[in-house]
């Protein structure tokens, strides 16, 4: 195939569980590789997106870097997909939305049990945390959503094969889970 479909993936405020679940398509990855080429992704170590057909975003937005990465994906991907509970509603990281940021940092780096050399990290290389964790549809336009924690390998497979074969992607009942 001359022009392969270009796919980029990233994990923002996520746990990489969605990426692991994607890899659970197992040997079907070989089939996928015949028609798909990976651009920026933890699977390739390419650092920045170029023009892509599909961008898969795992995780919500919790810091300034997440915002930049998400905007880079939106700019470069024709189709942007929210993958998993955290991208869709903030998920587990959004539990901190009910606690002021300063209290979170104090608990983690100053007053927490077993903290040695208490100090809130302030290296300029570190992205600044946002006050709250946000689902990605609050920051950029999202074209499709794959719910689940994580979405099963079959969800990835169904969605990508639908798109690749030119069908409007859809998930049947048994593939829709929020847990």
């Amino acid at each position: 195939m001359a022009n392969k479909i270009r796919v980029a993936t990233t994990s923002l405020a996520g746990c990489f569980g969605c990426h692991m679940s994607f890899l659970d398509i197992d040997e079907r990855m070989l089939q996928l590789a015949e028609v798909v080429e990976f651009d920026r992704s933890p699977l390739t170590d390419i650092e920045h997106c170029t023009d892509c057909d599909i961008g898969l975003i795992e995780g919500g937005v919790c810091n300034s870097e997440n915002v930049h990465v998400l905007r880079e994906f939106r700019k470069n991907c024709k189709i942007l997909v929210a993958v998993g509970a955290c991208a869709i509603n903030g998920g587990l990281p959004a539990l901190r939305n009910h606690i002021p940021l300063e209290e979170c940092l104090n608990e983690s780096y100053i007053e927490g049990i077993g903290v040695e050399n208490p100090k809130i990290p302030s290296d300029i290389e570190l992205p600044l945390l946002l006050n709250q964790v946000h689902p990605i549809h609050e920051v950029v336009k999202i074209d499709y959503f794959l719910p689940g924690c994580p979405p099963s390998a079959d969800v990835f497979w169904k969605f990508l094969t639908d798109l690749i074969e030119g069908r409007e992607p859809s998930l049947p009942y048994e593939l829709v889970h929020y847990d």
Binding site: I88, G90, P135, H137, Y173, V176
Partner: peptide
């Protein structure tokens, strides 16, 4: 609530989240 979401093939929240306390 979840099951109704599944039944309606609800895949996203569409609206901004409140995160109420």
């Amino acid at each position: 609530l979840q099951a109704v979401g599944y039944h309606l093939n609800m895949l996203d929240n569409h609206f901004p989240l409140f995160y109420p306390d």
